Simulated assay, not measured.
Amino acid sequence: MNPFVLPWLSAVSMFLGIFFFFAGTVGLLRFPDTYTRIHALTKADNLGLGLVIVGLMLQTESWAVVLKLLLIWLLALAASATACHLLARHTLRSEHPPRVPASPEPR
């Protein structure tokens, strides 16, 4: 691949990852209940971490480092899914129902 394109692809991937981290944080702060907050946080953070990892993979010259980064991402995916599942289950068992927006009155 062209040596001028690779750093740009890496930078774009990392900036997109940072954007998704920011979007997940905004979702965590803005959404009304626990269920929507963890949904926004897990989706955006997993994608953000994946894009940052891809950006780092494009900068490395060793296949061993690429495999280590891929393993880190897979372990983070598993940990995030497990933690959010446990949090949602605890919230449901503690009888905090999801907030459903009130439907508008029929005219």
Rank of each mutant, 00 (worst) to 15 (best):
L49R: 09
F15R: 06
F22D: 03
P98N: 01
P101L: 13
T60V: 13
H90N: 04
L9K: 14
V54W: 14
L71R: 00
W8Q: 08
A11L: 15
S80F: 03
S80V: 09
V66S: 05
K43D: 06
A83S: 01
H39G: 07
D33P: 03
L41C: 15
P98L: 09
G48N: 13
R99Q: 10
H85M: 12
P106G: 08
V65Y: 12
L6I: 14
F31V: 02
L74Y: 07
P97I: 06
R89Y: 08
Y35L: 15
L67H: 10
V12T: 12
L67P: 11
S13M: 09
T91Q: 07
C84M: 07
L29C: 15
A81Q: 11
L58Y: 06
T60M: 13
K43C: 09
S80N: 13
T36C: 04
R37S: 05
F20P: 05
V65S: 07
N46P: 02
L47G: 02
L74T: 07
I72G: 08
R30G: 03
S62I: 00
A102Y: 09
D45K: 09
P104V: 11
A83F: 02
M14A: 06
L87A: 08
L77Y: 12
S94D: 11
T34R: 06
A88W: 01
P98W: 12
A40C: 00
L87H: 00
A11G: 14
V5C: 06
R107Q: 15
M57I: 14
P32D: 01
P32G: 05
E95T: 14
